[in-house]
Measured scan of single mutants.
Amino acid sequence: ARCQGVVCAMKEAFGFIERGDVVKEIFFHYSEFKGDLETLQPGDDVEFTIKDRNGKEVATDVRLLPQGTVI
Rank of each mutant, 00 (worst) to 15 (best):
residue 60 T to G: 06
residue 50 I to M: 11
residue 14 F to S: 07
residue 26 I to K: 02
residue 46 V to C: 04
residue 44 D to C: 14
residue 10 M to D: 01
residue 51 K to F: 08
residue 52 D to F: 07
residue 2 R to A: 06
residue 13 A to H: 14
residue 37 L to K: 08
residue 26 I to G: 01
residue 43 G to D: 02
residue 71 I to H: 14
residue 3 C to V: 15
residue 17 I to K: 00
residue 39 T to W: 05
residue 54 N to A: 12
residue 55 G to R: 05
residue 64 L to S: 07
residue 41 Q to D: 04
residue 46 V to M: 00
residue 19 R to D: 05
residue 34 K to S: 12
residue 12 E to Y: 09
residue 41 Q to V: 10
residue 19 R to H: 10
residue 42 P to V: 15
residue 54 N to Y: 04
residue 2 R to F: 08
residue 10 M to E: 00
residue 64 L to N: 03
residue 13 A to L: 09
residue 47 E to D: 12
residue 12 E to R: 08
residue 68 G to K: 10
residue 59 A to N: 01
residue 47 E to V: 12
residue 54 N to L: 06
residue 11 K to P: 14
residue 69 T to K: 10
residue 24 K to W: 02
residue 55 G to S: 05
residue 51 K to I: 09
residue 10 M to H: 02
residue 52 D to Y: 05
residue 35 G to V: 02
residue 2 R to S: 09
residue 18 E to D: 06
residue 16 F to V: 09
residue 48 F to D: 01
residue 41 Q to S: 11
residue 13 A to F: 10
residue 57 E to F: 08
residue 29 H to E: 13
residue 52 D to K: 09
residue 17 I to D: 00
residue 9 A to F: 04
residue 63 R to Y: 07
residue 47 E to Y: 05
residue 71 I to W: 08
residue 54 N to T: 09
residue 36 D to S: 12
residue 23 V to H: 15
residue 17 I to F: 00
residue 38 E to Y: 08
residue 16 F to G: 04
residue 63 R to K: 09
residue 25 E to H: 13
residue 6 V to E: 04
residue 30 Y to S: 04
residue 53 R to Q: 08
residue 58 V to K: 03
residue 12 E to F: 06
residue 13 A to K: 08
residue 70 V to M: 13
residue 10 M to Q: 05
residue 31 S to I: 04
residue 19 R to Y: 12
residue 32 E to Y: 02
residue 40 L to C: 03
residue 23 V to E: 15
residue 30 Y to F: 13
residue 46 V to W: 00
residue 68 G to C: 06
residue 4 Q to H: 10
residue 43 G to A: 01
residue 56 K to C: 13
residue 55 G to A: 03
residue 4 Q to P: 08
residue 43 G to T: 02
residue 56 K to H: 10
residue 30 Y to Q: 04
residue 16 F to S: 06
residue 32 E to W: 05
residue 11 K to F: 08
residue 26 I to W: 02
residue 12 E to P: 14
residue 51 K to Q: 12
residue 7 V to P: 00
residue 20 G to K: 11
residue 19 R to V: 10
residue 29 H to M: 11
residue 41 Q to R: 12
residue 14 F to L: 04
residue 53 R to E: 13
residue 9 A to Q: 14
residue 33 F to M: 03
residue 19 R to I: 09
residue 65 L to D: 04
residue 60 T to K: 04
residue 70 V to W: 07
residue 7 V to D: 00
residue 54 N to W: 04
residue 23 V to P: 12
residue 58 V to L: 07
residue 43 G to F: 01
residue 50 I to T: 06
residue 30 Y to W: 01
residue 8 C to A: 15
residue 12 E to S: 10
residue 52 D to S: 14
residue 1 A to P: 02
residue 38 E to D: 14
residue 44 D to K: 13
residue 16 F to M: 04
residue 65 L to F: 13
residue 50 I to A: 05
residue 48 F to W: 11
residue 1 A to C: 13
residue 38 E to M: 09
residue 24 K to L: 04
residue 40 L to A: 02
residue 20 G to R: 14
residue 11 K to E: 11
residue 34 K to N: 10
residue 5 G to W: 02
residue 14 F to N: 08
residue 44 D to V: 12
residue 52 D to T: 13
residue 71 I to K: 14
residue 47 E to W: 04
residue 13 A to Q: 10
residue 21 D to S: 11
residue 6 V to N: 05
residue 45 D to I: 11
residue 64 L to Q: 06
residue 45 D to M: 10
residue 35 G to D: 10
residue 68 G to W: 08
residue 9 A to K: 05
residue 64 L to D: 15
residue 60 T to R: 04
residue 12 E to H: 09
residue 45 D to Y: 13
residue 53 R to A: 14
residue 43 G to S: 02
residue 17 I to N: 02
residue 43 G to M: 04
residue 9 A to R: 06
residue 24 K to F: 02
residue 3 C to K: 15
residue 22 V to K: 10
residue 38 E to K: 15
residue 54 N to H: 14
residue 22 V to R: 11
residue 40 L to H: 00
residue 8 C to G: 11
residue 34 K to Q: 13
residue 40 L to F: 02
residue 3 C to E: 15
residue 70 V to P: 14
residue 16 F to W: 03
residue 71 I to E: 10
residue 17 I to H: 01
residue 51 K to P: 02
residue 50 I to N: 02
residue 10 M to C: 05
residue 59 A to Q: 01
residue 60 T to A: 11
residue 24 K to R: 15
residue 6 V to K: 14
residue 65 L to C: 07
residue 37 L to A: 08
residue 1 A to N: 13
residue 3 C to Y: 15
residue 31 S to R: 09
residue 26 I to L: 09
residue 37 L to R: 09
residue 14 F to T: 07
residue 50 I to V: 12
residue 51 K to A: 11
residue 35 G to K: 00
residue 2 R to I: 13
residue 64 L to C: 07
residue 37 L to H: 07
residue 68 G to D: 13
residue 58 V to R: 08
residue 27 F to Q: 13
residue 11 K to V: 03
residue 35 G to Y: 00
residue 70 V to A: 14
residue 56 K to E: 13
residue 53 R to W: 10
residue 4 Q to M: 14
residue 24 K to N: 06
residue 3 C to T: 15
residue 28 F to W: 02
residue 48 F to I: 00
residue 56 K to I: 08
residue 16 F to L: 09
residue 27 F to S: 09
residue 35 G to F: 02
residue 18 E to S: 07
residue 5 G to L: 02
residue 44 D to N: 11
residue 31 S to D: 10
residue 60 T to V: 06
residue 71 I to A: 12
residue 39 T to N: 14
residue 33 F to D: 01
residue 39 T to D: 11
residue 8 C to L: 13
residue 3 C to W: 04
residue 55 G to V: 00
residue 21 D to V: 07
residue 61 D to I: 03
residue 6 V to F: 06
residue 61 D to S: 05
residue 22 V to L: 13
residue 7 V to N: 01
residue 43 G to C: 01
residue 25 E to S: 13
residue 1 A to T: 08
residue 4 Q to N: 03
residue 25 E to M: 10
residue 57 E to K: 12
residue 16 F to T: 12
residue 43 G to I: 00
residue 27 F to K: 10
residue 68 G to H: 11
residue 25 E to A: 12
residue 70 V to I: 10
residue 53 R to F: 15
residue 46 V to N: 01
residue 6 V to R: 13
residue 23 V to I: 12
residue 49 T to R: 08
residue 3 C to D: 15
residue 39 T to G: 13
residue 53 R to Y: 15
residue 3 C to F: 15
residue 56 K to V: 12
residue 29 H to Q: 13
residue 12 E to N: 11
residue 29 H to K: 05
residue 9 A to S: 07
residue 23 V to D: 14
residue 42 P to C: 12
residue 33 F to S: 02
residue 28 F to Q: 00
residue 10 M to S: 03
residue 56 K to W: 08
residue 3 C to P: 03
residue 8 C to K: 15
residue 65 L to Q: 12
residue 7 V to E: 00
residue 46 V to I: 03
residue 27 F to H: 07
residue 69 T to M: 10
residue 21 D to R: 07
residue 7 V to I: 08
residue 57 E to N: 12
residue 17 I to Y: 03
residue 54 N to Q: 05
residue 45 D to G: 14
residue 31 S to W: 04
residue 22 V to Q: 09
residue 30 Y to G: 04
residue 38 E to F: 05
residue 36 D to M: 07
residue 34 K to L: 09
residue 33 F to E: 00
residue 35 G to H: 03
residue 71 I to F: 10
residue 29 H to G: 06
residue 62 V to M: 02
residue 61 D to L: 03
residue 14 F to V: 05
residue 8 C to N: 09
residue 62 V to S: 02
residue 33 F to A: 01
residue 44 D to H: 11
residue 65 L to T: 14
residue 8 C to D: 03
residue 64 L to V: 13
residue 4 Q to R: 07
residue 43 G to K: 01
residue 51 K to C: 13
residue 34 K to R: 12
residue 28 F to L: 02
residue 63 R to P: 00
residue 34 K to I: 06
residue 12 E to G: 09
residue 21 D to P: 10
residue 61 D to T: 03
residue 19 R to Q: 09
residue 11 K to Q: 09
residue 8 C to M: 09
residue 17 I to W: 03
residue 21 D to E: 06
residue 13 A to W: 07
residue 23 V to T: 11
residue 56 K to Q: 09
residue 71 I to M: 15
residue 68 G to Q: 13
residue 59 A to P: 02
